[in-house]
């Protein structure tokens, strides 16, 4: 195949960022868990608080997390995430964050790494129909960052 200079450049840039990412449609669950990193690399727990606050994850809308107590207003819809790293393995947590419905049937928790099978998907929060392909709520990297953080939430 002959690549023009431009497409080659694009391929290289994209390759650097995404070459290793497993796409949402290609994720393999076993008993709700995803055993391998979606990026092929460990996540950075330091980036998680922002994602879990008003970032793309918004986890504390529904969950209480003592370690994030400097962020106000934690929700009560789901259980506290304290001790999640003791209750679950890394693969199980990755599975819960990517698609909690694979672990908890009919869960209210949104699937953060899934792009199809939705009813009337919208274009973000505009109320209009989505155009083209949906992006997952979290990128592969963000999922890994959140999982790495959850693993630090150990029982005392």
């Amino acid at each position: 195949m002959k690549l023009t200079r431009l497409t080659l450049a694009t391929a290289l840039v994209a390759g650097a960022a995404f070459a290793e990412d497993i796409k949402p449609a290609d994720v393999a669950f076993s008993d709700g868990a995803i055993e391998t990193s979606l990026t092929g690399m460990p996540g950075d727990p330091a980036r998680a608080p922002e994602i879990m606050d008003k970032g793309a994850g918004n986890c504390i809308a529904c969950h209480e997390v003592t370690a994030l107590n400097d962020i106000p207003f934690h929700g009560e819809v789901g259980p506290t995430l304290d001790g999640a790293g003791s209750r679950w393995s890394e693969g199980e947590l990755r599975g819960i964050v990517a698609n909690a419905k694979m672990t908890f049937e009919g869960s209210m928790m949104p699937a953060f790494y899934k792009t199809d099978g939705f009813n009337r998907p919208g274009d973000a929060y505009t109320g209009k129909a989505a155009e083209g392909e949906l992006a997952p709520l979290l990128t592969a990297q963000q999922v890994e960052d959140v999982v790495a953080f959850l693993m630090t939430l150990k029982d005392e």
Binding site: G75, E76, M108, P110, R120
Partner: peptide
């Protein structure tokens, strides 16, 4: 259940009334 968050009216207003969702 509607949308990418996959939530129905009942999820919030029947199953969770009385609970805080953020503030």
């Amino acid at each position: 259940r509607f949308g990418q968050l996959d939530l129905s009216c009942a999820n919030c207003h029947e199953d969770n009334f009385g609970n805080m969702i953020r503030a």
